[in-house]
């Protein structure tokens, strides 16, 4: 036993030495390369003015603002599309997942068809297709469709009345020189990304929900019905609490991958974090720093989600015990 312990220690020491050597070598080569070629490094560029504009932003942003604020605006844009998409995909996915368990053959078939189609086509392709549909089939901004009072839909997106604005309580969209001016505008990039992410993730959520419900032994629902519960009561009081326990962990995973998938925004011109970081990379040439920033932010989001998910699991655990 003593020998084994010593050997393990030896192996680990060697491993650590190899690792340090590799790291040292990597840093040495990189630093050497950069010094020899006069490449600047460091994060000082974050304080410089960004110098480029961002098409749409939740945070007030101007090209004279600093680069880090530009990246923050990018992150805000990522969350701006990811959070509604999480909500929409969870709702739609739950409905479809339940639909797949319906006694009705048509509904079951439709939901199965939805899942099998959406899951088996790359998300990027779906996003590109949605974007093409939104920008190509809608009328140009100068001839926007009016869906209601002060609600316009066109190639330039969906314009809605929004609180605030210069004058009164509501900022109303109006027809301007090139199209719609004022109000809150949801751009086609945003709409396509929201639509694509929600529909794609809904297929995965549906499978998660279906799997979760099927994981509850059949005897449970039979017993509940035998006790005289209605189908709704059985579902709410017996099936759901048990199913949730196996649904929630994979569900948070789906939400996390939705947030990561939002990075595909770069392909359709929505200024999310990756897109803004990519522009920064081009303007400053600081490739390593920009990529490191993207990765760090996403890692943080992942940790945050993991933590939230654990908290949620504890909460539902308690709720299950109570009901």
């Amino acid at each position: 036993m003593q020998g084994r312990r010593r050997r393990e220690l030896g192996i680990q020491a060697l491993l650590a030495a190899a690792l340090l050597a590799a790291l040292w070598w990597l840093l040495d080569v990189t630093a050497g390369n950069m010094a020899e070629r006069g490449i600047r490094s460091g994060f000082d560029f974050l304080r410089d003015p960004a110098g480029f504009a961002i098409g749409e932003s939740l945070l007030p942003f101007d090209s004279a603002d600093s680069t880090w604020w530009a990246l923050a605006a990018g992150l805000a844009n990522t969350l701006r599309v990811a959070l509604p998409a999480i909500l929409a995909s969870t709702l739609l996915g739950t409905l479809i997942g339940l639909g797949r368990l319906s006694p009705n053959l048509l509904l079951r078939g439709l939901c199965a068809g939805y899942v099998e189609t959406l899951r088996n086509i790359p998300l990027l392709l779906q996003l590109l297709a949605w974007y093409f549909v939104v920008t190509d089939l809608l009328p140009p901004a100068s001839a926007a469709l009016q869906l209601g009072p002060h609600v316009f839909l066109s190639k330039s997106g969906l314009a809605l009345p929004w609180p605030g604005g210069d004058g009164g309580l509501l900022d109303l969209p109006l027809r301007g020189e090139f199209g719609i001016v004022g109000g809150a505008a949801l751009t086609p990039e945003f709409l396509a990304l929201l639509l694509g992410l929600s529909l794609y993730t809904a297929a995965y959520v549906a499978e998660t929900v279906r799997g979760g419900i099927q994981s509850v032994p059949r005897g449970q629902s039979d017993a509940a019905l035998a006790l005289g519960m209605t189908r709704l009561q059985m579902f709410r009081l017996v099936l759901l609490p048990q199913a949730l326990r196996s649904i929630i962990p994979p569900l948070t995973n789906q939400h996390l991958s939705l947030t990561k998938n939002a990075s595909l925004a770069v392909a359709i011109g929505y200024p999310d974090l990756v897109s803004v970081a990519n522009t920064t990379l081009n303007q400053t040439g600081r490739a390593a720093e920009c990529i490191a920033l993207i990765m760090a932010v996403y890692l943080m989001l992942s940790l945050l989600t993991a933590w939230l998910s654990a908290w949620l699991e504890r909460r539902t655990g308690r709720w299950v015990e109570r009901s």
Binding site: S263, L264, V266, V274, I291, I294, M295, L301
Partner: peptide, 15 residues
């Protein structure tokens, strides 16, 4: 697993 594939591809391609 914490980062999007696109950032890994950027890493491979640029870095």
């Amino acid at each position: 697993r914490g980062v999007p594939l696109i950032s890994v591809l950027f890493l491979a391609s640029f870095l």
